[in-house]
């Protein structure tokens, strides 16, 4: 068992991979964990493929290297499957979570990944819930279902903390509902 639980998120610039990583670690922090999250800063172009990382641990996290052997890979945009090797460094005991209307069997076939693979149509959930294509937060719901590495209550709290003042109660609630819906729908 690795001491540090590592998550790698694949997305495109502007899709909120960095924010999702931050929500995840903030939720873990409230359970007293050691945490770390950072994006892979490239040229920072909207729409360009990018990665963000999150680490959760009971021991101090010292490394600042990018996550090489993730326990979980989250793919926020399934079109990346064609251009990026999302399963690089992901062992068969790891988890692959993909935002896609396709089934996990289809994704497994496409990625040739033999471990635990789950999909959820986070884009549809986000559009239904908040009216915008922001699949990053629903994917956290999928992460909770798949790994239990953080709790739904803590995520709710960090989303409230970040959004309540900024976008108001109604939209914040819709965001949280989208997370819960993805939690239920992911398979």
């Amino acid at each position: 068992m690795k001491e540090i639980f590592e998550i790698r998120i694949h997305g495109r610039g502007g899709q909120g991979a960095k924010t999702a990583a931050q929500f995840i670690v903030e939720a873990a922090l409230s359970k007293g964990k050691h945490i770390q999250s950072f994006p892979e800063y490239g040229p920072e172009r909207a729409g360009a493929p990018m990665k963000a990382f999150a680490r959760i641990s009971d021991v101090e996290i010292r490394t600042y290297a990018p996550v090489v052997n993730p326990d979980v890979v989250i793919v926020i945009d399934h079109t990346l499957l064609d251009s990026v090797d999302v399963t690089e460094g992901l062992n068969d005991d790891g988890v692959l979570l993909v935002n896609s209307p396709l089934s996990s069997e289809e994704i497994r076939k496409k990625t040739k990944f033999n471990g635990k693979c789950m999909t959820v149509d986070a884009t549809r959930i986000a559009i239904d819930a908040v009216g915008r294509n922001l699949p990053n937060t629903p994917m956290i719901g999928a992460l909770i279902k798949a790994t239990n590495c953080i709790s739904m209550d803590d995520i709710e709290e960090s989303i409230n903390h970040k959004f309540l003042k900024k976008i108001g109660e109604e939209k914040t609630k819709a965001t949280i509902n989208a997370v819960k819906k993805a939690y239920e729908e992911v398979k």
Binding site: V25, L29, I35, Q36, S37, P39, Y41, Y64
Partner: peptide, 9 residues
């Protein structure tokens, strides 16, 4: 970036 933009404890 490595530490300046890394969220940590």
């Amino acid at each position: 970036f490595i530490t300046s933009h890394c969220v940590q404890n």
